[in-house]
Nucleic acid binder design. Structure first.
Lengths: 348, 348
DNA sequence: GAAAATTATAGAAGCGCTTCGATAAATCAA
DNA sequence: TTGATTTATCGAAGCGCTTCTATAATTTTC
């Protein structure tokens, strides 16, 4: 705008002449590439500091044909969810992006995505080097991303055998149930909803495996599921009514997420069922509310920020194409599951 | 990465030769500038479509010395707040950004910001044309932004007399209280917390003005405030206990936000106080939970997305520096307040 | 101790666009 | 009619980098 004291922008040229070097040498120092003598490097670095030189991103991008941007695609409804699950993941990504010198362009897509029409601009204009897609999104979008040839990583969702970071739901389910068994519970129920979601079904699978292992034959006896409902507090309340009305009275419940657990506890309170005395409850996710409920909810903690970080660092790996021996990703297999932690509070 | 069928990137040059024009003419068409005959324009546009040309952002930015990016700065804790207030605002900004052809770079800052050290990268590297700062942030950061010379707009916060978009708290407060008075309430209380926050104090001010107008002398008689606590559900519960224990029994309460109102209602339930029969309650914000509480909360709706949109469009105005007669911003005064709406549900 | 490989630096092309003249035709003013 | 404006188009410079190539100087190899 209308400025008077426009400080002339410091360019690589200024640094070069100030340090008595060529532009290319300065560039190499900045990018840690090629051969530069220690002496020259020192001169250049001090010139950079002295002149307060910051490379121009646009120039850099143009010349190197990279953007240094990562796209983060998320469904609108996931973004504005009152429980900050995906925002936490985003935060982790953003944090890690700083370490890798990327910017993150967040782009939300509507829930009823229409191919071509709703295509995120960052995809159309191709000004990202890679893309992170968090949560379940429309298949059409996934297809578009694939077709674009831009490397991408899925988070908390699986599709075909694309690189993805997911929660280790099965093991977490096993851990939760095993804990209940240790506590001498025998009648252990599972409460779930939206069973088609891979995360939920994974948790159920963990439950079933643990029950089988413990010698139960009919692992579906105590399974209560609202197949097509989303796993909310309200749904939890509703399922709870069925649970409490059923003949077989469980002494413990493993819920597919915290919202369900909280809803179930609400219902229990209404019915005068004491938790954890009459009924032990374990949730999943470790949402904010879990710490504040009464009794405080015992649950499986999901490390959301870590997931976001991991997604970014894996994507960075893909982009840099550096065969990284330390990589958490085995050769062929680009699927990584993140471990969880059982947080024992009051409800179980 | 390693692609086989790399589609050669379509450049402005390709379009130019295909349309039998010069690069500069194509550029002018793309940017809607200068003089181009209708005929040539049509040719060029159809070539663009045919070749599926998308301008390169980096090249553009480099040549024009703009970035086409807007920075959106937010405190981490505000971002991961379980109530998606700021994320909603961000969503509005992002939405509007598409219309103005900007990308939004979201950058969170830690709550205990340290000048220089925590400076957002987008500020340091100056790769945004303008900045939106949402919510209260550290003064030092504000200073840095100011010093950078990059135009900025504050949202839901005021500082000196910088351009800002805020909620019309005072009028909303008046509206809420007036509604209660219409409903023949005479003993109307105000419940608030964190009173130094301009939004909260604005709401109190509205309350006081309405009460004065209604003929009350001692407008502070019925004011209950937890000065330094943040306005959460827990705080609401605590204040409620004081309210219910006090001698003067209000028949209606105007709460500074929904969380407080929800907490108060929780406490009322414990005490067997019926809402709205024994006590009318009005909240503020219209959070998700307001629709689900029982009774459903009557509250003042804040149009979060709209605020975000407004912030962006105002910033765009500043950047384009086009004296816009339709602007909602009067000449000198760059402060805009966004109106609210009283949503009448069950609690009042 | 000559050829090969490595280290160190500089120069220049070029990434894809915007924008500043230059030029010329068409329109206007008097 | 003639000079001044407006309209229309093009060519070329240049934005600030990266990176390829060239050229030396130095070190390694056998």
């Amino acid at each position: 705008m209308n400025k008077s004291k426009i400080k002339k922008k410091v360019t690589i040229k200024d640094v070069a002449s100030h340090a008595n070097a060529s532009m290319s040498t300065v560039s190499m120092v900045v990018n840690r590439k090629g051969y530069v003598s220690d002496e020259k490097r020192k001169d250049i670095l001090s010139s950079i500091r002295e002149l307060n030189y910051v490379p121009s991103a646009s120039a850099r991008n143009l010349a190197s044909n990279r953007t240094n941007n990562i796209g983060f695609i998320l469904r609108e409804s996931h973004f504005t969810l009152s429980e900050p699950f995906y925002t936490r993941i985003f935060l982790g990504t953003e944090f890690e992006a700083k370490n890798h010198n990327y910017y993150v362009l967040l782009s939300t897509v509507t829930d009823n995505y229409e191919k071509e029409i709703d295509t995120p601009r960052l995809l159309k204009e191709r000004n990202v080097d890679g893309i992170i897609i968090a949560g379940k999104v429309d298949d059409g979008l996934l297809q578009e991303v694939e077709d674009s040839g831009i490397p991408f990583v899925l988070v908390d969702y699986q599709y075909k055998s694309y690189p993805c970071i997911t929660v280790d739901n099965i093991n977490a389910g096993i851990k939760a149930v095993r804990y209940l068994i240790e506590k001498r519970h025998t009648e252990i129920a599972f409460v779930g909803a939206d069973i088609k979601h891979p995360s939920i079904s994974g948790r159920l699978e963990g439950y079933q495996l643990a029950m089988l292992k413990a010698g139960y034959k009919d692992v579906n006896d105590f399974v209560f599921i609202a197949e097509d409902d989303s796993p909310t507090l309200q749904t939890g309340f509703r399922i709870a009514e069925k649970v409490f009305d059923s003949l077989k009275k469980p002494t413990a419940v493993f819920c597919a997420n915290d919202a369900l657990a909280l809803g179930l506890m609400e219902c229990a309170k209404h019915r005068g069922i004491n938790i954890p005395e009459d009924l032990a409850v374990i949730g999943f996710d470790d949402v904010e509310g879990a710490k504040f409920s009464s009794p405080k909810l015992t649950t499986v903690r999901v490390f959301k920020e870590q997931i976001g970080e991991l997604a970014l660092s894996h994507l960075a790996e893909l982009l840099e194409d550096i065969p990284n021996k330390d990589s958490k990703f085995e050769r062929s297999n680009h699927m990584l599951t993140v471990p969880t932690e059982l947080v024992i509070r009051e409800s179980a």
